[in-house]
Computed example of a mutant assay.
Amino acid sequence: MQSKPTYYQKIVEFVRKDFTTLNKNLTVDEALKKIRKEGVGERIVYFYVVDDESKLVGVLPTRRILIAQEDQKIEEIMVKRVAALPQEATVYDALEFFATYKFLAFPVVDNEKKVVGIVDVNLFTDELLEEKEDQLEKYDYDSIFETIGFRINEIKNASPIKAWKIRIPWLFATVTSGIICALLTGAFQSTLTESLLLVFFFTLVLGLGESISIQSMTVAIQTLKTTKPTLNWFIKNFIKEIKTASLLGVTCSSVVFTVAFIWKKEFTSAIVIALSIIFVQIISSLMGLIIPTVLHKTKLDPKIAAGPITLALADVSTIITYFGLASIVL
């Protein structure tokens, strides 16, 4: 019996290894002979079809192979659209898969789409784990999905106290960054007296930094669901973020510079604002990449913690960049 999983553990820790894969080029007769020779694991529901490189290309329900003609190719009778969990998925992700698709098992695949294991619905039902094997087939599987759906709903609709416990630590991150930002702004009080134009555009620059950091963070989190972060992967995306953020920064700064200069005719201040936007966009964009990657690497859940931490660091770096550049130039 496997230990009861917690929601944010990796699903790959709970997969079954007694699965059978069939090459798509086999005939039904050849596949059945292979199954008889190698045997199957307990409670087999689906056979998974792979290509010559062992990559997952389809799924074959047991009923289809039993009623097919012996000379038919597996590729002809398999279901090509197969839902698979990436090995980086969490137990909670698997719960959502079962509740959404209502299949009894899912393959778990690595970054090359090779099957590393099978997770079946029995993992999530305490009642099933306590049943004897000869009683499992009589279990009402509709009630399993109702149970899973209820558990997901229970997580999403936590009590106020439970929700408070989950959310307050990350709000403290925002409070802390806000206090630091206030102190930093105070330290640049003399710089603010040099140009009121800096004050007028401060909120805009801060908002741009937060926006691009969240955009980059969202992309990074989605990518990390199916990709194992390596040094080459990080360097490639680091350079990509710099290039993208630079283009975005130049575009936004051009518009802001034009408006600021036409409005107040302060060329130097307008230049400071424009350059700050470019630097802030680049730094905040990199924050959006780095924070989720570090959290993922340290086995923490980036979906929960990345947002507050990324925003906090983006705000602090924006203030230092904005007022720091202004104090040097003005």
Rank of each mutant, 00 (worst) to 15 (best):
V175D: 11
T321I: 10
I152K: 00
Y8F: 13
G307D: 08
L60I: 03
D110K: 06
K17G: 09
G324D: 02
A187H: 12
T251N: 03
T100Y: 15
V79Y: 06
F234A: 01
E96Y: 00
I155C: 00
V116D: 08
L275C: 10
A83E: 06
V294N: 09
F14V: 01
A173I: 15
I282C: 08
G178H: 15
F202P: 02
V219I: 04
Y48Q: 02
V15T: 07
F279P: 07
P302C: 13
A305P: 06
N232F: 04
F267T: 07
L198G: 07
K17A: 09
P308W: 04
P302M: 13
A312Y: 04
A163S: 13
A83K: 13
I166C: 09
T193A: 11
N232R: 12
E112H: 14
R151Q: 14
N122I: 10
L32P: 15
D18V: 15
G249Q: 05
L330I: 11
E75K: 15
Q9K: 11
N122S: 10
K33S: 15
G209A: 04
S276P: 03
T193H: 14
F234W: 00
T90N: 01
F97P: 06
K299G: 01
K243E: 11
V79Q: 15
R151A: 00
T174K: 05
T90Q: 04
C252T: 13
K34Y: 14
M1E: 03
F19L: 09
